[in-house]
C-alpha cells in the first residue's frame, strides 16, 4: 500500500516542495495540508517542513501553533500517527508543545548553511526505525535558530528515555548534548534541524536522508 504523507503548508513555508518531491521519489504519495484547514485528510504520516511559518513573527513557530491544521496534527500525533518536523517544523512542534525544549539562536553568531555528519542514536523513532544505531549520515543544515536547549530535568529525561534521535558529530550550533533531533516518549513525533529531504540524490551531494524518510514512509505499517 502506498503511504500517503501530508506536508503542512503555512504561509512562509519554503521546503514543502522538497519534502513532497522526496516522498514521491521514495514511492510515497504526498499531499499538501493547508494550514487553514483543521484536518490531516486521513494521511498516514505528517511532515511539518522547513521555512519561516507566518514569517517567524514573535518567534519561530510561535504563530504557527494557532493555525487550524495544528489541532488536527496534535490529535493525529496523540493517536500515534507519525509526525516529523524538519528545521522550522521542529521549531513549530516545540512551540506547539508536541516536543519539549526550544531552539535558541546558534552559538557563534552565524546563520549556518552547510552539510554535517549526524549519528543515529536510537531506532525507536518513526524517523530512524530503518536505520542502525551508530550509522553516520551526511545531511544539510540551513538555520539560524537551531541551537537546541532545555532545562536539566528535560535533558535527563530525554537521555533516560532514549529520546535523542540524532546527534551532530561536530556540533555546529551549540546544541546541548550535541542534539540534532529528538522524539516524544512514544517515538512517533520527531523533530530535527537537518534536512533529510535535501539528501535524497547524489545530484544533491548525499543520499543519506533516504534511510530516514524511508523509515517515515514505513512507519504506518509498523504501528
Amino acid at each position: 500500500m502506498t503511504t500517503r504523507v501530508g506536508v503542512v503548508l503555512f504561509p512562509g513555508s519554503n521546503c514543502e516542495l522538497d519534502a513532497m518531491e522526496a516522498v514521491s521519489s521514495l514511492g510515497g504519495d504526498a499531499v499538501v495540508l493547508w494550514h487553514g484547514e483543521a484536518t490531516v485528510q486521513g494521511v498516514d504520516a505528517v511532515i511539518v517542513p522547513g521555512g519561516f511559518a507566518h514569517g517567524d513573527y514573535l518567534r519561530p513557530g510561535a504563530i504557527a501553533r494557532f493555525s487550524p491544521v495544528m489541532a488536527a496534527v496534535q490529535a493525529f500525533a496523540e493517536e500515534g500517527g507519525p509526525v516529523v518536523g524538519i528545521c522550522n517544523g521542529f521549531q513549530v512542534l516545540t512551540e506547539a508543545g508536541l516536543l519539549p525544549g526550544a531552539l535558541q539562536k546558534n552559538a557563534g553568531l552565524k546563520f549556518l548553511c552547510t552539510t554535517v555528519d549526524l549519528r543515529v542514536e536510537t531506532t525507536r523513532s518513526a524517523l530512524t526505525a530503518g536505520a542502525e544505531v551508530g550509522q553516520i549520515l551526511r545531511v544539510p543544515i540551513n538555520h539560524f535558530e537551531g541551537n537546541y536547549t532545555c532545562d536539566a530535568d528535560t535533558l535527563a529525561l530525554l537521555q533516560a528515555e532514549d529520546r535523542i534521535v540524532l546527534r551532530y558529530l561536530d556540533n555546529p550550533n551549540g546544541s546541548v548534548d550535541d542534539i540534532a533531533g529528538i522524539c516524544n516518549a512514544a517515538g512517533n513525533v520527531v523533530g530535527l534541524m537537518p534536512h533529510p529531504e535535501r539528501a535524497i540524490s547524489e545530484l544533491l551531494g548525499s543520499v543519506d536522508g533516504t534511510v530516514l524518510l524511508r523509515s517515515l514512509l514505513d512507519a504506518p505499517s509498523r504501528v
Binding site: 535558541q104 553568531l109 551549540g174
Partner: peptide, 13 residues
C-alpha cells in the same frame, strides 16, 4: 528578555 545563558548574537554583535 533572553534568559541568562541564552545565545544573544545580536547583543554580542
Amino acid at each position: 528578555r533572553l534568559r541568562p545563558g541564552i545565545a544573544d548574537p545580536a547583543g554580542a554583535t
